[in-house]
Design a protein around this nucleic acid. Structure first.
Lengths: 154, 154
DNA sequence: GATGTATCGTCAGTGCACCGACGAAAGCAC
DNA sequence: GTGCTTTCGTCGGTGCACTGACGATACATC
């Protein structure tokens, strides 16, 4: 009997956490717009005119995935995509009027959902929850990108 | 400027955490067997002869997803799938010899990976990390399944 | 200005995750 | 033992996520 206890495996917990969030999002926020789509829209509200790659970087999506998400947002008319006249490789993205409207609406609902989602934790615990996850995720991402500043011995 | 700070959104953090884990798993554990596949294999090592639905329940996968994972594990010869003679609707699953061998090997590597993944946290913090995530995930899952035991006050 | 390298976006392939609908089998009526 | 309902697995559709390869554009060097 060499089976392990998955409740002490961070990867398994992360997956379950994300699934739980997915379900709650569907019921409390939107069945049309997904959480990653909202994240991209949010990035464009903060910085209109981002190119695809940078937008993906802001929310943690690789080139392929951001391309698909952008396609869907474009199909829904929430985002405009135009070639950068300065750099013919890039597409510049900005939210449409409708995109801004949807973003405002979902921002409210998302805040409500987050409250429900985190309700099992006290205020202090919620802060800890963010801090611990962020530190683990940042460190793991750092393992992949061997540092950008100084140390250009890569 | 109505953009929100995604680092205080648990769903976004959960996604980033899972992605970080995915990358680390690929480099430190296996490029062939994925984390969900290992989870299913692990469940079958613990309880050989589970049917598909129950196995999915053990690791948190719905019917459609567990079906795909089982297909892949079967294709790799890590698992046997036979009809339940007692109940013609079910398939009973058990690991093959090769499946047991792979499970043992990955168990070791997974433990190493978890250490690296959680290295940014102290021992106390790791315990907290598990506890907080588990509580949030359990509560959210509870919202979906309106309770099985008493407390039918929905 | 031609050559070589790096970057941006796309495409194909694989895998996880959900939903809704479906057929087959089982269990419960009566 | 003929129906009603439930359960198990499958199938089709959508969406996220990664990899590796590719064409087009830009940049850097000569």
């Amino acid at each position: 009997m060499a089976a392990v206890d998955l409740t002490t495996h961070p990867g398994h917990l992360a997956r379950r956490l994300q699934q739980a969030h997915y379900l709650l999002w569907n019921t409390m926020v939107s069945e049309e717009i997904t959480s990653p789509q909202f994240a991209v829209l949010n990035a464009l509200v903060a910085e209109p005119g981002l190119d695809q790659r940078t937008a993906g970087e802001r929310v943690g999506l690789d080139r392929s995935t951001i391309a698909e998400v952008v396609t869907r947002l474009g199909r829904r008319g929430l985002l405009d995509k135009v070639r950068d006249p300065q750099d013919g490789r890039r597409f510049l993205l900005r939210p449409t009027e409708e995109g801004l409207r949807v973003h405002r609406k979902l921002t409210v609902r998302t805040a409500r959902m987050n409250q429900v989602f985190l309700a099992p934790l006290s205020g202090d615990e919620q802060a800890l929850f963010f801090d611990l996850i962020r530190r683990v995720a940042d460190a793991a991402e750092g393992l992949r990108n061997p540092a950008e500043p100084a140390t250009a011995q890569g």
